[in-house]
Write a protein that binds this DNA or RNA. Structure first.
Length: 285
DNA sequence: TGCCAGGCCGAAA
DNA sequence: TTTCGGCATGGC
């Protein structure tokens, strides 16, 4: 375990886990910056379904409280999910060194961390995201989970896990279209087929260089550079995944007209997320 | 009522 | 290789 993990402390507290002195984690930004679509704030507590479980958490001053969890479970899977295995002091230093505009964006988005989502969920979510707005993406993802995800109860309510490929395969294109997926219905069918038939194996992608990962993901119909980059970043932890051909035309052309070849380095994907959030923030969301 | 949204596909130049 | 129209749908 490297030194930076000693920057915070994980303790048990009345059936909850409390992460003491945690920097660079603002739930309002983490869960509302457009990287995930299944979390909502309720009575000051962020809650959502992830990895088949209800996750509830809130900030308490310098600490982060995760409800109804023991430290063993937290350390084995949620440390990684919440992005706490990466030192954001180092990320931030690299941004400050790279560029002043990015540094400004990082000021605004201070507290964003990249979650470690399931690649399958990221793939489906970001196929749905194309040419769609965030409230509608949330609504469509939820509709999909209610339709074919496993139902479970937690904290006195019913929730639905994100459907597995097999569960998605019980639906056809017309079912997805009925849900309001539009022309993405065919893409969802192909993604499901691709994973079930082994054309796309996520396990092979973790140790692969990011550019090859993106090429592989593009074997699914409806997955281009942008969607593939989001899956690589949010679902496979490829922090350098940067959707260059899309953002060169949008964000880069907008903020870096004379520097189309700017290199954001090993955390380019995180830089991209700060810039995405910054654009939403300065344009009033 | 229009415009637009975490884009991609396929055709045309 | 780059450019561009079309695409389903519903937030705003």
């Amino acid at each position: 375990m490297s030194d930076f993990l000693k920057k915070y402390e994980v303790v048990s507290d009345g059936g909850d886990v409390v992460v003491r002195s945690l920097d660079h984690f603002d739930p309002d930004l983490v869960f509302d910056c457009g990287q995930c679509f299944r979390f909502a704030k309720k009575d000051g507590v962020w809650q959502g379904v992830a990895r088949g479980r209800l996750l509830r958490l809130t900030r308490e001053g310098d600490d982060l409280r995760i409800f109804d969890m023991d430290t063993a479970e937290f350390e084995s899977s949620w440390l990684d999910y919440l992005g706490l295995t990466l030192d954001y002091d180092i990320v931030r230093e690299s941004f400050d060194a790279a560029d002043s505009h990015l540094s400004d964006a990082a000021d605004v988005g201070q507290g964003i961390r990249i979650l470690g989502q399931e690649p399958w969920e990221a793939l489906i979510s970001f196929i749905i995201s194309q040419n769609n707005n965030i409230p509608r993406i949330r609504s469509l993802v939820e509709r999909l989970c209610v339709r074919c995800g496993k139902k479970f109860s937690a904290n006195g309510e019913d929730f639905f896990a994100f459907p597995t490929p097999d569960e998605m395969a019980t639906l056809d294109e017309s079912d997805f279209a009925e849900m309001g997926m539009g022309y993405r219905a065919a893409y969802l069918v192909d993604a499901t087929r691709g994973v079930r038939e082994g054309r796309l194996l996520f396990d092979e992608l973790y140790d692969m260089p990011t550019d090859r990962v993106i090429d592989r993901l593009k074997c699914v119909k409806g997955v281009g550079t942008k969607v593939a980059s989001c899956v690589a970043l949010f679902g496979l932890g490829k922090y350098d995944a940067f959707p260059i051909d899309v953002w060169v035309k949008r964000i880069l052309a907008k903020y870096y007209p004379d520097r189309a070849d700017i290199d954001f380095g090993p955390y380019a994907g995180i830089a991209q997320q700060y810039l995405f959030y910054f654009e939403r923030y300065i344009e009033g969301k």
